[in-house]
């Protein structure tokens, strides 16, 4: 069983199929890091993104690029609504974490039922067929879906990394995730940052669901099941560690696929729960990689205050 072709095939297919899982895990982890909430409305955003693309591409027969645009518009609108009329109000009312957690589940169930009423429960795909052409690369089957999927997920992650590292709003997000109240003192509008995080997560979900729905069948409640993987990857990768979640998603996908070579396939479904159990009990803060040595510049790098806003350093001594 353990010949190089089989391992190569499992490795390649796992890498390709974890492309959407990486996006879901990064989206979930980003909101957890910045907004400090377990956002299970992400399942609703994922479903909305899929059905918008499905209606545009499969039902209306329009090109995928239009489907992607419609999907993004739908999911961004949903993200704006949920942040503005949901999370913002709950934060204002100082709702407990548990209450917000229940709210996110309720929204996802509600959206799933709405989609069920609108589109029915028959499993659907973005394109009419599930079959993708295949090329053999050294006896490893590479479907024509694989490379674009990996490239899309990698591009999204790269764009997010660049955004967080080099843009003003990206640095505001990091600042808010570190200490929202202190960030506010520096003139950062944390409400806009929270909104931005939810909207970026929504956009990642849209890309992820288009990848998923062009290869697998989707029902209104499928996204709730997909969230289990995103949650496990986020916890295993370390809560608040976006890239840890992405790496955990890839590793979990590979381990899950390869596991059937070593354990009875009936036990495969237990693996995710086993990882979750071990991660929560033994690594509640996630699996930490050794910290990289910081340069003097990065240590002393400061966030530029918003224009016209005084920093604590500008304040006269009392």
């Amino acid at each position: 069983m353990l010949d190089p072709i089989i391992l190569g095939q499992i490795g390649w297919t796992s890498l390709a199929t974890t492309s959407y899982y990486v996006l879901f895990a990064v989206a979930f982890s980003l909101v957890l890091k910045v907004n400090r909430l377990f956002n299970f409305t992400q399942a609703a955003a994922m479903s909305i993104a899929f059905y918008a693309a499905y209606a545009t591409v499969n039902l209306a027969g329009l090109p995928l690029i239009v489907g992607l645009a419609v999907s993004l518009v739908a999911v961004l609108l949903f993200s704006w609504l949920i942040e503005t009329y949901g999370f913002a109000i709950l934060r204002e009312k100082k709702a407990s974490v548990l209450f917000i957690f229940i709210f996110t589940f309720m929204v996802s169930e509600f959206v799933a039922y709405l989609l069920m009423l609108t589109f029915g429960t028959w499993p659907n795909t973005i394109f009419k067929t599930l079959l993708w052409p295949v090329s053999l690369v050294g006896n490893v089957a590479v479907s024509h879906w694989d490379v674009p999927a990996i490239a899309s997920a990698a591009s999204c992650c790269l764009l997010l990394a660049l955004f967080l590292r080099f843009t003003r709003w990206g640095q505001f997000m990091i600042a808010v995730s570190d200490n929202p109240d202190l960030a506010e003192l520096y003139g950062i509008d944390k409400r806009r940052v929270f909104l931005l995080a939810v909207m970026i997560a929504g956009a990642l979900c849209a890309v992820g669901m288009i990848l998923y729905g062009s290869r697998s069948q989707v029902q209104p409640k499928t996204s709730l099941e997909l969230m289990l993987f995103a949650t496990v990857a986020t916890i295993v990768g370390g809560i608040g560690n976006i890239w840890g979640a992405a790496i955990a998603a890839i590793a979990l996908g590979f381990v899950q696929n390869a596991s059937v070579l070593f354990i009875p396939s009936q036990l495969q479904g237990l693996l995710l729960y086993a990882f979750l159990f071990v991660a929560i009990i033994f690594f509640p803060a996630g699996l930490k990689l050794p910290e990289r040595k910081r340069t003097f510049e990065s240590k002393t790098r400061q966030i530029t205050p918003a224009p016209g806003v005084a920093t604590p350093a500008d304040k006269p001594a009392e």
């Binding site: 796992s14 199929t17 899950q256 059937v260 396939s265």
Partner: peptide, 17 residues
């Protein structure tokens, strides 16, 4: 004689077996 999980989205391992 291979099983797959009801929540599975990829069946590569089982199919290769």
């Amino acid at each position: 004689f291979e099983a797959y999980d009801p929540k599975a989205t990829d069946f590569t391992g089982q199919i290769l077996k």
